[in-house]
């Protein structure tokens, strides 16, 4: 579990089928909140919504019998949920609940944030009473995050989010671990990346030059391919925050290896003599190419 800083805890927001139409607005609000780092955005296709509701709420503080009536509306919802895993950098543990059986610990900030989202997107009040048909649920503890990750197929649970592929460099948790690497300038035209392709209902990866990626074309006013790409794979095979809004945010005042982030290198490996496959940082490489860079300082993994 994340013990490095008591103020930092892993957390998730789960948007039920009833709220999926607002998912982009909700993700934007999470992204724009400096207290959260989005780690993973994942759709989960639900085979049995009743079972999922039970599994989610079985980890809740309140006894399941109290939640049965409150979650009835979910049984009719779209059998798909969107889960946003975040690092909450403003964890404020507090005891809530008056009656003994409802007493529980949760983060005050997450509770407030969740409440704000519910006020905006829950169904409108009826006869002046707030709707309890919540479109969003949030975890109260890292134990619940661990449980949900395991439930949706990440057998390492919360350890998956906690992975540090390299102890010196800040690298996303899904990069493979490495201990031998070099940092050097690389010709920008020697960069490639993998792109997902969907053919005959199967998904495969294809090697493609940086300049031919939808990501690069997006910056050159040909936005359709990228929109289609994200629409097809965002939240499924692409679980980083690759949504347009985040790309636009990155684009604003983009400065590679800035004073604040001097070690956030683009990471690649050499797959052929002097040709490199980007493992992390395709968007940044595209931005640099568009800014006119001929070479990029990057990390080349050697093991």
């Amino acid at each position: 579990m994340n013990d490095q800083n008591l103020k930092e805890k892993y957390c998730y927001f789960l948007i039920w089928g009833t709220g999926l139409q607002y998912s982009q607005q909700i993700i934007n609000q999470i992204r724009n909140d400096d207290n959260f780092d989005i780690l993973k955005i994942k759709y989960y296709e639900v085979k049995n919504i009743k079972k999922l509701v039970k599994q989610i709420y079985s980890q809740d503080y309140a006894p399941l019998k109290h939640l049965k009536g409150k979650t009835k509306y979910l049984l009719q919802s779209e059998p798909r949920v969107l889960i946003i895993f975040v690092l909450n950098k403003n964890h404020q543990e507090k005891i809530f609940g008056k009656k003994k059986e409802f007493k529980h610990i949760e983060c005050k900030y997450i509770k407030q944030f969740k409440g704000k989202i519910r006020d905006q997107f829950n169904p409108p009040p009826i006869n002046g009473k707030k709707s309890h048909e919540h479109i969003i649920h949030a975890s109260d503890s890292e134990y619940q995050v661990d449980h949900l990750l395991k439930l949706i197929g990440y057998k390492d649970g919360i350890k998956y989010l906690d992975k540090k592929p390299n102890s010196i460099l800040p690298t996303p948790h899904h990069t493979r671990p490495f201990k031998n690497f070099s940092i050097k300038k690389v010709d920008i035209d020697s960069l490639y990346c993998y792109l997902y392709k969907k053919e005959n209902n199967s998904i495969h990866k294809e090697k493609i030059e940086l300049v031919n990626t939808p990501h690069y074309k997006y910056l050159n006013k040909d936005k359709n391919d990228y929109l289609k790409y994200i629409d097809t794979f965002g939240g499924f095979t692409l679980t980083d925050d690759h949504f347009i809004e985040n790309y636009e945010k990155l684009k604003e005042n983009f400065l590679y290896l800035s004073e604040k982030k001097p070690l956030n290198y683009i990471i690649a490996e050499e797959f052929q003599l002097n040709n490199y496959m980007i493992l992390d940082g395709v968007h940044r490489a595209c931005l640099l190419k568009q800014q006119g860079a001929k070479t990029i300082i990057m990390v080349i993994i050697k093991d």
Binding site: N180, S182, I183, K185
Partner: peptide, 13 residues
Amino acid sequence: YIKKNNCEVRIRQ
């Protein structure tokens, strides 16, 4: 140094 010169830094943990 990497920016300015023909320099590479190799790290072996």
